[in-house]
Amino acid sequence: MTTQTTTMKTENTVWHKPQISKLQRAELKKQKPALLWYTGLSGSGKSTVANAVDALLFTLGCHSYLLDGDNVRHGLNGDLGFSDEARVENIRRISEVAKLFLDAGLVVSTAFISPFASDRALAKAKLEEGEFIEVFIDTPISVCEQRDPKGLYKKARAGEIKDFTGIDSTYDVPVAPQIHVKTDTQSIEQCAEQIVNYLMAQGFIPAQAFTSTVTSTPA
């Protein structure tokens, strides 16, 4: 169970309605705004798959942007740790940022562990119906530990890192994700194409044939 943070609201502020709507921006880009919310254990391949999808969308002429968990913690969320409370605030902030990107008419990807189902639900609740697409990067922890691209599992097992998801911190497995990929049995190219095909099938981006040129490896 997570602890929800209380956000301070500035007094005497009124929401300013922009002259150009989200719909107008999306129509200009010939696509529908969507948030691809990648979730999975550390080392499951979230960032690798998200980057492959972003690159594929770019080759298709789509307007997209990737918000990576580590990158965001270098700036916007650089003041947050990894306690349950900090993780909740981390997701709250990125949800608000993602919402702004959707207002610009983009297809947005967020690659975060986002371990708590309640926080993912809150992120979904901020958006319009159908815009939130949960992408479960389903990789066994044994495979993640074997990869251990950042050496984090080794440190967690040695007690050098506390509150590490999958070791001494909870991960709520998605119950009904819109997209379910397995990087231990699928190549990165197959994962990326599965996700982009979903976007086409659901009408978020124009349906078109493509040839994948992405050659990333799981991380």
Rank of each mutant, 00 (worst) to 15 (best):
Ala121Cys: 06
Thr211Met: 06
Lys99Cys: 00
Glu27Leu: 11
Ser47Ala: 14
Leu41Gly: 08
Asn90Leu: 02
Lys30Ala: 11
Cys144Leu: 01
Asp138Ser: 10
Val196Asn: 03
Glu27Ala: 11
Val107Trp: 10
Thr6Asn: 14
Ser114Cys: 08
Arg73Ile: 07
Ala219Pro: 00
Glu134Thr: 12
Gly40Pro: 02
Leu23Ser: 14
Glu145Ala: 00
Asn77His: 10
His16Met: 14
Ala86Ile: 04
Leu57Gln: 01
Ala125Pro: 06
His180Ala: 01
Asp184Ile: 02
Val53Trp: 01
Leu80Glu: 11
Val53Gln: 04
Asn90Ala: 08
Thr215Pro: 01
Ala52His: 02
Pro18Phe: 03
Leu80Ala: 12
Asn197Ala: 14
Asn77Ala: 14
Ala207Glu: 14
Gly69Leu: 11
Asp172Glu: 07
Gln178His: 10
Leu102Glu: 02
Tyr171Lys: 01
Leu106Cys: 01
Arg120Ile: 02
Arg157Pro: 09
Gly40Asp: 06
Ile91Phe: 04
His74Ser: 04
Gly43Asp: 07
Val14Gly: 13
Tyr153Lys: 03
Thr215Asp: 15
Glu160Thr: 08
Ala98Tyr: 03
Asp79Ser: 14
Val175Trp: 07
Gly43Val: 01
Val88Trp: 15
Leu152Gln: 12
Glu145Ile: 03
Arg87Leu: 08
Gln190Asn: 10
Lys124Phe: 07
Pro140Gln: 01
Asp79Glu: 13
Leu102His: 09
Ala111His: 06
Thr3Lys: 15
Met8Cys: 12
Glu160Gly: 09
Arg157Ala: 15
Leu80His: 12
Tyr171Cys: 03
Glu160Arg: 14
Val53Arg: 00
Ile137Ala: 12
Val107Arg: 12
Leu60Ser: 05
Phe112Ala: 00
Asp70Ile: 02
Arg92Val: 00
Ser42Lys: 06
Gly61Cys: 07
Ala123Glu: 05
Val97Asp: 05
